[in-house]
Design a protein around this nucleic acid. Structure first.
Lengths: 304, 304
DNA sequence: CCATTTTGTTCAAATTTTTCGAACATGAAG
DNA sequence: CTTCATGTTCGAAAAATTTGAACAAAATGG
């Protein structure tokens, strides 16, 4: 058995496609352009397939090249998983744990958790990503993350996950707007069809695989979509729009008067259930520690 | 990005496991034993994992080594598939052909066509979407589909398409209503301004880019819009509305009496021309096969 | 449209990686 | 205890990849 394909060559191919040119790929990989040419032409030669269109003088993939790029990326991702797995099996500890943090979770608490973790397992790298709403579940489902903190209650279809409520199992969302905003002087409780006339700010669900969703939006309302809650908070302060924000995130703003809360027809605040979640498959020592550490009577408080 | 794993190393690992010893693997791979030792120890080093148990003096895998063997074999098999696929694509076969199927086309016939296709090209994926009316053209124009079956006669402005009438170049639409519907007892032929007083059911044109259109509707008529013909049929049966349906789709309903046909002022039935259509650019082997297979004297019948 | 920059390729030399062959040590088998 | 096969080590040889400079074609930007 022999393989014309080489993982290294796939990395080169990916870099070219990602950066748009041989030269840029060379820089990104800390190599010289001719090395890239060499790698590609060797791949083409052993594959007996032209991957790039040599008519023009820029990197343009042939259909075959395009296909190899797609499938190659799969292969690379797979080998990465394999490597991770092997290391975990060999040592019992994961080489890396990727944690998806819901954006309602205060980051300093997360860093404190990381600190605790490093005390126990300094060799296991932690990698944090912020996810919005269902994005945490999506990250788990797509394999972008191993553990999720602050995933919304409802788990996606298909099993293989375990979950556990946070010690404070919900966050309070309050209707918060800039004092300059027209609605600031409206009579409380503010009616839904009054709210509907003003632009809402929505944190975009970062789901890429699962169906995105939006909560707290009234139909027919104009919407400004922002990437996460901290941007949403800024948008509220600037008076660009209205909506609900987690109380703990805006306490200082309320004290300083840059934001004010309003009672709405639906009630003063909403409450969202929050969970830890993880895949039940492949539990190494690090994951086990995390689960034990967090799903526990004396576990840490996230919002106080 | 970097990979500790090398496909070549996986081949070596596989050979050792298969032949039982480093020496035998060396012979099988036409290499010298020390080369095998080198490859393995390099793999172990870059992976920072011991794959072989060095206690005894024969090849004995550690648990991690065993795992890598299993997963490595998967990877090797996968790369082999990828290689094969790339070569196929390079020789003119598409990786995927997306077919837009007009909703008047019976799906079991389409599946039979897929079956025939897979006999010739099992590796080319087929992806089917249902489109309503001009939606088939729209799918072609917007690049959502490569081939259309059952597109209505008039092609959209702008060239680049070829088309060919189906073997049975038209479908008969009959005016069909529930026997419970008020119009069921009306005198034939039913006058247009009588029809106009009742709600029509219309299948929504699935175009997103091109101008949607509607057929068989009288101006001023109330309309229930449904996503496709099968829902339209159900709506007719439930008496929710009236309109034209393709005869072949409701033959059983007519036999069972859940629907009845009526002659209208415009005549008993309408007839719609149907075509195959495709983009003339980028014709791969699979598309060529499809075109030859379908645009042919002995081509398949869709409605019998 | 032309000047300028960028891009991909080629080539020989330098460097790294891999293979080879022989010598060696050690466990297994009789 | 001998014999055999196995895995390892090491210096030398071969093969591969990388480098840097030179070049031509193409893209870019007035």
């Amino acid at each position: 058995m022999k393989t014309a394909i080489t993982l290294d060559a796939l990395i080169v191919l990916d870099a070219i496609a990602q950066r748009g040119s041989f030269a840029a790929a060379a820089k990104a990989l800390h190599r010289v352009p001719s090395s890239i040419t060499y790698a590609i032409s060797k791949l083409e030669q052993s594959l007996e397939v032209n991957l790039f269109d040599r008519k023009g003088h820029k990197a343009h993939l042939t259909p075959a090249g395009e296909a190899l790029l797609q499938e190659g990326r799969n292969l690379l991702q797979l080998t990465d998983h394999v490597e991770r797995n092997i290391k975990r099996i060999a040592t019992g500890w994961e080489a890396e744990i990727r944690i998806a943090v819901g954006d309602v979770i205060p980051y300093d608490k997360v860093l404190q958790l990381c600190d605790d973790f490093y005390q126990v397992a300094p060799e296991t790298h932690l990698s944090l990503t912020t996810e919005v709403l269902g994005g945490a579940w999506d990250a788990l489902a797509s394999g972008r993350a191993d553990f999720a903190i602050g995933a919304p209650g409802d788990s996606p279809p298909g099993g293989g996950y375990a979950s556990h409520p946070l010690k404070e199992p919900s966050v309070d969302f309050v209707f918060a707007i800039s004092p300059q905003h027209p609605l600031a002087s409206a009579k409380e409780p503010i009616a839904n069809n009054l709210i509907r006339q003003h632009r809402a700010v929505a944190a975009a669900d970062s789901s890429r695989l699962l169906q995105p969703r939006t909560v707290g939006l009234l139909s027919g309302q104009s919407v400004l979509t922002v990437p996460d809650l901290s941007v949403k908070r800024l948008a509220h302060i600037k008076g660009l729009g209205i909506g609900y924000l987690p109380l703990h995130l805006i306490e200082q703003d309320l004290a300083e008067g840059t934001l004010v809360t309003k009672i709405t027809e639906d009630g003063a605040n909403h409450s969202h259930g929050l969970y830890y979640a993880w895949q039940t498959k492949h539990l190494g020592n690090g994951m086990t520690w995390l689960i034990n550490h967090l799903c526990h009577e004396e576990a840490m408080n996230w919002f106080s």
